[in-house]
Write a protein that binds this DNA or RNA. Structure first.
Length: 680
RNA sequence: GCGCCCGUAGCUCAGCUGGAUAGAGCGACUGACUACGAAUCAGUAGGUCGGGAGUUCGAAUCUCUCCGGGCGCACCA
């Protein structure tokens, strides 16, 4: 509703400016007045034009107001302050627009045709240890953004990239083979034993990874050197494949990967495809990319300087000096002929855009309730769905990787794929760290100099952090206590279900309420909070509304239909002179009804908030919107007692208000990946 | 040394392309359950928007500079 009216208004202002002054402005700034008494929309455009037109802003504002005249959906315009143009909506019309949810759905369908095919990569945890809170932020941000894209009509593929041949997996393999002396059979036995005793392989690896990392640092100088070599040779054997080391790596990384998928599924997070590093290597993606990069001249052979003997590319923003060796160039192929991480990433991203000329093999890997998750393999099965070949990609990767990401974009641009480079979004976010207090509560040693810090970075290598499953378990325990205290009439299964919904709601909201570039200093006190600006607060508003309808022995659908029918009926011709529009206007007028209007207004903002989230890649705005909507409903709830309202028309109107608030809250929560419980 | 991010109330954070008296949650203090369940609501206190300069009719927002903090800048992945 709000977005549509905004567009209508800016359009009218634009034509008015054109007619009056012969000006063509494509950007008309719109804002929200500080107080509802001033209207619902405003523009300071007159200030901007004052200099150009050499007139007082107030005068210009008056002329614009005269120029736009009457606009459908608006009650009127006025000049305020030194030259603001304030717009007042036709409240009854706005209510009708907001109520018709079909309009919103249609908007999404219409836009679907123009939306590009998008690919979102998120999670991408090294499969060598349990997921921790940092990974949760990544996955929750990514999953929520996927939901937003889909809500807006995008076709979206979700990918979780698996580095199953990297140094982190190698470290765990070193631990298994050389610290524990295990063969592939031994690892298989370990996996069986763990699953029989209900233990988690990802937790097991968490400790082993930390121990192996420590082991590298211990011993004499010769021992350290030997261990370093062992690490390197293990990595190479894994990359090459077809040997015992690689077999162990495959067993472990696959088992840990399954655990990650299970952990994420607890949060309602699913994937379509899991491309693996091993296939990128074995299917020779790099070799294909190398040819393309050479042909396009992005890569060149360096014959001088410190990078002599390497294939390199210029970094973004590098100024090409004539005849001088670019010492700052990024090495893509080392002098020993091996390719760097960025090189492989370029190949992978050419594939994402369908520019590589090669494809993975595919096989099913994990079953969800309503879909399958596929994984890459050398020789896949037929038929299989097609992945890659996207028009827009979003990589949910923390901000520390912005340099390598920029290199990949630069390579695409250099190859002439400018449209692809423009639709390559590094969806970056800051890390989740622990407060020193939290770290000490968990029993970690915190050195003196770290105690004064605001936060301490988590580290898988040190085994320092909060595991995702532990956090979820603890949240469920805490919500369960609350549910048990309140829902005495419900059985075990129901209580556990509700507790789970609230726990996940709290966790997802917690990870989404902060904007992306703010570091989250994690603390159990904040994460376990269910009051104030939290997921459960929003869920509670939903439950309250449902209780009203339950108690009133009716449904949101029935009341909305009644409300609509009343209007249609009366518009058809009532003789008492008070038609529905006037009546609605009366319900929304006056100081005592301002909160009701505020609620409808907020409810009508859904499309605007969605567009804002997509334009800025920032889900936090939706979290804020959901909270404010819940807050405004609670406000309304306390001031107007719905079920005891005597005037039947007003009662219907209040129930319709609650029904629309419910619909919008449930929708917003759904986009945030948060369920709406039946009771709390 | 170079690049990116951050500095707003006691704490944690919003503040959109510059715009009307700088907001929220938590915490503190006062109040409101025989109501549609208080995981709620109402109220009070609390801010030289890190410092300085500049651009502008107008700056938390843009530019410069300084201070303080974080993260990147490999022939590691």
């Amino acid at each position: 509703m709000y977005l549509a009216l905004q567009k209508r208004l800016t359009g009218r202002i634009r034509t008015a400016l054109e007619a009056k002054y012969g000006l063509q402005l494509n950007n008309i700034p719109l804002e929200i007045p500080p107080d509802l008494s001033l209207g619902e929309m405003a523009t300071p455009i007159a200030f901007e034009l004052a200099r150009k037109l050499r007139k007082a802003p107030k005068m210009i504002a008056q002329e614009i107001v005269a120029g736009i005249g009457q606009v459908e959906g608006f009650a009127g315009f006025e000049v305020a302050g030194a030259g603001y143009i304030n717009a007042r909506l036709n409240r009854a019309a706005a209510v009708r627009l907001t109520m018709e949810s079909a309009v919103n759905a249609q908007l999404a369908r219409e836009s679907a045709a123009t939306r590009p095919h998008a690919l979102v990569e998120h999670t991408s945890i090294n499969p060598n240890k349990a997921a921790h809170i940092g990974h949760l932020r990544n996955a929750i941000l990514g999953d929520t953004f996927v939901r937003l894209l889909r809500a807006a009509g995008y076709k979206v593929d979700v990918q979780n990239y698996i580095d199953n041949t990297g140094v982190q997996v190698a470290d765990v393999v070193v631990g298994l083979r050389h610290l524990q002396g295990k063969t592939p059979e031994g690892v298989r036995a370990l996996l069986d034993e763990l699953s029989r005793s209900g233990q988690r392989i990802d937790y097991y690896c968490w400790d082993l990874y930390a121990r192996t990392s420590q082991w590298y640092e211990q011993g004499t100088a010769e021992e350290k050197e030997a261990r370093k070599q062992l690490r390197l040779s293990t990595l190479h054997e894994i990359e090459r494949g077809g040997n015992e080391t690689a077999a162990i790596a495959d067993l472990i990384s696959t088992a840990v990967l399954r655990r990650h998928l299970e952990t994420m599924l607890r949060l309602g997070i699913e994937y379509d495809f899991l491309p693996r590093e091993s296939e990128i290597l074995h299917l020779k993606f790099w070799e294909a990319a190398f040819e393309l990069l050479k042909q396009s001249g992005v890569l060149y052979f360096e014959s001088e300087g410190k990078n002599k003997g390497c294939w390199v590319m210029a970094r973004p923003g590098a100024t090409a000096a004539e005849d001088e060796t670019d010492e700052d160039a990024k090495v893509i192929v080392r002098s020993n002929g091996t390719v760097t991480y960025v090189g492989k990433d370029i190949a992978y991203h050419l594939w994402k855009f369908g520019l590589l000329g090669r494809d993975f093999g595919y096989k099913p890997f994990f079953d969800y309730a309503d879909r399958e998750c596929w994984i890459s393999t050398e020789q896949g099965i037929e038929p299989h769905p097609h992945f890659g070949g996207a028009q827009a990609i979003y990589n949910v990767i923390d901000s520390r990787q912005s340099d390598p990401q920029a290199n990949v974009i630069q390579a695409l641009r250099g190859m002439g794929h400018t449209a692809e480079a423009d639709h390559y979004t590094h969806f970056s976010y800051e890390m989740v760290a622990l407060t020193p207090r939290c770290a000490m509560e968990l029993g970690y040693d915190v050195v003196e100099e770290d105690r004064g810090r605001a936060y301490i970075e988590v580290s898988g290598r040190k085994g320092f952090g909060v595991k995702a499953d532990d956090l979820i378990d603890e949240l469920i325990r805490a919500t369960r206590r609350e549910v048990d205290a309140r829902q005495t009439g419900r059985d075990e299964g129901e209580r556990q279900k509700i507790a789970g919904q609230i726990a996940i709601g709290a966790l997802r909201y917690f990870m989404l309420k902060y904007t992306r570039n703010s570091v989250i200093a994690f603390d159990f006190k904040d994460a376990l909070s269910f009051e104030g600006e939290t997921g459960p607060y929003v869920q509670y508003a939903v439950v309250r509304i449902r209780n009203i309808f339950r108690k009133g022995n009716t449904t949101p659908e029935a009341e909305l239909a009644k409300f609509e029918a009343q209007q249609v009926g009366e518009l058809a011709g009532q003789q008492d002179g008070s038609n529905a529009t006037e009546r609605i206007a009366a319900f929304l007028a006056g100081e005592e009804n301002e909160d009701i209007w505020a609620l409808w207004l907020r409810a009508g903002r859904r499309a605007q908030v969605l567009e804002q989230c997509l334009a800025t890649s920032e889900p936090a705005y939706l979290a804020k919107h959901a909270f404010q909507l819940a807050q405004e409903f609670n406000n309304f709830y306390h001031r107007h007692h719905i079920l005891t309202e005597d005037d039947p028309a007003r009662r219907t109107f209040l129930l319709a208000t609650a029904a629309v608030a419910l619909r919008e809250l449930v929708t917003a929560l759904d986009w945030l990946g948060i369920e709406s419980p039946e009771a709390m």
